[in-house]
Simulated scan of single mutants.
Amino acid sequence: MKQIGIFFGTETGTTRLVAKKLQKKLGDEIAAKPVNVNRIAPDEMLQYDAFILGTPSYGEGEIPGRNVGCLEANWAEFLAGMPAADFSGKRIAFFGLGAQERYSERFASSLFALYRVFKDLGAEIVGDWSTDGYTFQHSAAVVDGRFVGLVIDQRTQGMHTDERLDAWLAQVKPLLLEKLA
């Protein structure tokens, strides 16, 4: 497809809200309407060459799903239905949500679990993000001193969400658009 696909899992609706903000900032010409992964089959995702994938953090940093207490199907159920897909040639930027004060010892760690799955499937990952401005003890999503994707703490730093989305999109938009050419 000649648009950026935006897919997300959500438990409380906040990841959906951020996905919708990203799509609105990118515009209808560039980005497809965000889709909850509990509403699609994996082959629908594979139609895209450039993606933004979003996840809430849940459990101890596992991939969110019913097995870790989510009430609705989420990434775990979606991935269970996905065959050993080849994401070689596909480019993905990730965003994840977390609560740095409430879950300081595992802040946004589910983001790393999702990142690892798609990296292992051959995807090219773009859009790492600085840890500056966040206060937490540990996050599995930090690799080489940076988050593997944009991290949003809507609960305690919601006032920074729009500026972080804008700065991150300035970084990843040209990289994702290269895949649409």
Score class of each variant (00 low, 15 high):
22 L>Y: 04
21 K>S: 08
159 M>D: 15
62 E>A: 12
22 L>K: 01
101 E>N: 14
37 V>N: 06
130 S>I: 07
28 D>I: 03
25 K>T: 10
45 M>Y: 07
17 L>R: 11
36 N>I: 01
61 G>F: 05
146 R>N: 05
121 L>P: 02
12 T>Q: 08
27 G>F: 07
27 G>D: 03
47 Q>S: 14
9 G>I: 01
79 L>P: 04
89 G>T: 00
22 L>T: 05
133 G>S: 04
117 V>K: 14
2 K>S: 15
9 G>D: 02
96 G>P: 09
84 A>F: 12
14 T>K: 04
51 F>P: 08
139 S>C: 12
39 R>G: 14
125 I>S: 04
86 D>K: 10
41 A>I: 08
17 L>S: 15
137 Q>M: 07
104 S>N: 08
67 N>G: 12
104 S>A: 15
144 D>R: 06
143 V>H: 02
3 Q>Y: 06
120 D>W: 13
110 S>L: 01
142 V>Q: 04
77 E>Q: 06
28 D>M: 07
90 K>R: 10
151 V>D: 00
127 G>R: 06
52 I>A: 04
120 D>P: 01
131 T>A: 13
74 N>P: 08
84 A>V: 07
75 W>P: 13
20 K>Y: 05
175 L>C: 05
93 A>K: 05
50 A>E: 02
70 C>R: 04
53 L>E: 00
173 K>C: 12
166 D>N: 15
114 L>P: 07
98 G>H: 01
19 A>P: 05
174 P>L: 06
107 F>Y: 02
